[in-house]
Design a protein around this nucleic acid. Structure first.
Lengths: 222, 222
DNA sequence: CAAATATAATAGTAATACTATCAAAAACTA
DNA sequence: TAGTTTTTGATAGTATTACTATTATATTTG
């Protein structure tokens, strides 16, 4: 991808102190990504993170209210990044079909190159999204948090791709359902292919998941 | 549904002492379903459950190794019940289309009548599956647990419906992906419709979700 | 009625998810 | 450069969780 001097801005609601404002903050974010991937979200703690980065548990709490809020921050970062990639990859495409196809590709493809967005490893972050993101919104606080706008970026991504669907077929009644089914489905299929392979038909080498969901989208909206 | 003297049998691996073997065991299961629904899985504890049923925390541990294992038990019970409904609703249907259609209906429809399977409220259990089931298999132990057969019933349900897909179109390459996408997608859409409605296009009154996934299945396998 | 089994009560442990306080260090500022 | 503010670190402490272990008391069964 083209190298650009761009910067992902995260809503102030998601942190107590902006982790981008200091070296420690960035270290917290980048190491937390690695540790959540290694340990899983449940076994990951601020104490372990502090120890690992040579800092103190209490210092981490100055950036993030809780490990749940850190996870929400990471999701928001991820979806902002996807939104950027999505807009970048689809503007100036004339053909509506090609445009939607490019969008579905971005939503379903595995991230396997770290575009080195500063201190965040997008390959590992993608794995976290696949394995842990459902834990962020499957809580009893979902409604309050949704009102506070924690999931705005994700919803905007769904809206953008839904618009592409509607452009192609204005009569299609369920664009949001289709798009969120594809996004969440692709993540689940990636998880299943590694851990519960009999729930999938993933073939080695090829990216079956991208193919499956691309076909699905075009067949469903016809 | 027809009243039958049937009984759902759960693999011995999933409990320490069979909860069906005593009144206390059944109370543990039925009250845990209500409490997980009320409190959410995170806030639910064996201590609270014990207090609520007038029993002791330590007694509950004699039935289930951990609250995680109790959740796995509930999932297994749910999928066994769905499998029973599935087989019941699809045998003797001649038309392959109708058969698949009936299956998709069972997988995607909201459970809104408690068939009073003894001490288990299927309506509440269905809500738990929608809101909490992903927490059961999104853990670091998934591979070990899968080897132990904890998810066999779920996989068998997917297999059964995949077979119906294959009967209709033997050339379709991704029956398992399609079926697991539909099952998980329908659950997510129900959750979204309540908590993140802008990710869906659910209309009041009608069961949009059943319609959406039924259409999707037949379009995709064509 | 005795023996076996199930349950309850109590205590205890290590870890978690924080909060509070205070001192030390670093950064910025007059 | 000294002084002030801000940031970080160290330590301690709390309530709760997710258990385990032990012993006493019911309850069931033969």
């Amino acid at each position: 991808m083209e190298y650009l001097q761009i910067h992902i801005v995260i809503s102030e609601e998601l942190y107590t102190k902006n982790p981008e404002s200091s070296e420690l903050g960035k270290k917290i974010v980048s190491r937390s990504i690695e540790m959540i991937d290694e340990l899983g979200f449940e076994a990951f703690t601020f104490k372990k993170l502090g120890k690992s980065i040579g800092s103190n548990e209490s210092s981490i709490y100055r950036y993030f209210e809780s490990k749940h809020m850190l996870l929400v921050y990471l999701l928001c970062w991820y979806w902002s990044w996807i939104e950027y990639k999505l807009v970048f990859a689809t503007t100036n495409i004339q053909s509506k079909e090609e445009k939607l196809s490019a969008a579905v590709d971005i939503l379903t493809r595995k991230v396997d190159v770290d575009n080195s967005f500063s201190y965040i490893d997008e390959v590992i972050l993608n794995r976290i999204i696949i394995a842990e993101s459902s834990k962020a919104y499957h809580t009893k606080d979902i409604d309050t948090e949704n009102e506070k706008g924690y999931y705005t970026v994700y919803k905007r991504v769904v809206q953008r791709v839904s618009n592409m669907v509607t452009e192609l077929n204005p009569d299609f009644e369920f664009p949001h359902m289709l798009v969120s089914t594809v996004i969440e489905g692709a993540h689940q299929q990636r998880y299943f292919s590694e851990h519960l392979p009999s729930l999938t038909n993933v073939k080695k080498g090829k990216d079956t998941i991208v193919k499956f969901y691309t076909d699905l989208v075009f067949k469903v909206i016809k």
